[in-house]
Design a protein around this nucleic acid. Structure first.
Lengths: 246, 246
DNA sequence: TTGCCTTAGTGTCTCTACGGCACTAACATT
DNA sequence: AATGTTAGTGCCGTAGAGACACTAAGGCAA
């Protein structure tokens, strides 16, 4: 104990029955899309328990380095992918007596979205211990460490839910992209086709994109390139009850 | 330390730099509606730090009594209100070096909705230390302990957001209620009037309510009483992108 | 009993915006 | 120049939202 006094006071005043307090960690579901597949980042556990098993990347709060919880998440993400300005969202916190064999534990799950091109895997690590895996395969195999399969499942649910009413998938694409590329990402995540005209109307009416001015050439008719505009930061492009759609 | 071995291993394997680990607590934003006002439950802090200040009810995980995090929330809620089957939803987890003067700390915020009639305040406690306060007054005064004002604010945001697309406010009413009563609750939370016909059409088309068969009599024309039906549990009564509304 | 007030609940019109689908536009390739 | 492919548009039918006037059913006072 480096600071027994403050902790003792802390515990006494709240009637905690002893010092065996659950540790709090952060786990990350980092998604990207590559070759028309939704992928998630996994790391191989180097220590007990569950050594050798694949797991969501994560770790403990560093009280020196991290000022807030999201700093912990960002730090872990940077360690694994080299990216330091991801789309990052806290999803849910899981705490129970049984999720870790060592006893009561708590973990805060974060979801991150990255463009595949922006990533440099496993900075300063054994590269084989950090990999992208197709999400559907991970979900079918159900062999991740601890309760990471159910955490991942809930993060996936959240992603699918938010795609219904936000422009969140833009974070899976590079800065400039075509509407067809964006629509593809939506379809990959939702797992079903979307009407082209409706999609374009909604996303353009939402006023969250702006033209870069450039075109994507290559094969066939060139396509306009778009980027996320100022007011696109909020990601929301649809409301429901009353009032015009936003 | 009751289990030094496991904890040492735990910490070592993750390179935690020492034993001064943040403690994790649970805080609750408990809402109800009474006399056409949205209210939140506050407790007066009996110990340092911030002794005497009003705060959201909360506390630490009890590793014996609680099997999961939501058990902690439910236990706290039961202690303060006597209710043990609330609508309970985890909102967000706040962790930082500064939110508590004693150092790094983490708290998981929960939102609960209760019918006013179901509540017996402050079971076995000094009744003056647990009170209902009008939410707008709390938000204006901005004098809660720790970062509880911002936690409360985020819980309020979540409530308003979900009311846009769910039937969540039914949890603020007794089991049987009229559509007008339900509409009133929506209007109180959203802070603006709603078209009667539209409201009724949406909520009835959503198929989440069923008639009890009874009528609410009293003054003027009697109104049909409704309750939440089986499929109403999910609370969702509207979708957005593509496909018919659910 | 009648008439009036209040609240519950409905009929119906208009208009927006979605899905659907056929169409045109602009390139590459041969 | 013809063909193929992808980008992007025009337009129609229709569902469902808002708006608001209307009817329904009680209490209460005279």
């Amino acid at each position: 104990m480096t600071s027994p006094v403050s902790e003792t006071t802390y515990l006494k005043s709240y009637n905690i029955h002893d010092f065996d307090v659950p540790l709090t960690s952060v786990d990350m579901a980092i998604f990207t899309v590559h070759e028309d597949r939704l992928k998630v980042l996994l790391t191989k556990r180097a220590h007990h328990p569950e050594m050798g098993k694949w797991a969501l990347p994560g770790g403990f709060i560093d009280q020196i380095k991290d000022h807030s919880l999201s700093d912990t998440a960002r730090r872990k993400l940077k360690e694994k992918t080299g990216v330091d300005t991801p789309y990052l969202e806290q999803v849910e916190t899981f705490g129970s007596a049984k999720r870790d064999p060592r006893g009561w534990s708590v973990t805060v799950a974060y979801l991150a979205l990255l463009p595949y091109e922006s990533i440099t895997l496993a900075i300063g690590e054994n590269t084989e211990s950090v990999i992208w895996v197709n999400l559907d395969e991970v979900e079918q195999n159900d062999t991740l460490a601890f309760d990471h399969n159910s955490i991942l499942s809930i993060c996936h649910e959240r992603l699918k839910a938010k795609v219904q009413y936000t422009s969140l998938p833009v974070n899976l694409l590079p800065e400039a992209f075509t509407l067809t590329e964006l629509q593809n990402i939506f379809e990959i995540i939702l797992g079903k086709p979307t009407e082209k005209k409706s999609f374009r109307r909604r996303i353009l009416d939402a006023n969250i994109l702006e033209e870069t001015g450039d075109m994507k050439t290559g094969s066939n008719r060139p396509a306009k390139l778009y980027r996320v505009s100022e007011n696109g930061e909020k990601h929301v492009f649809n409301r429901i009850i009353e009032g015009p759609r936003v």
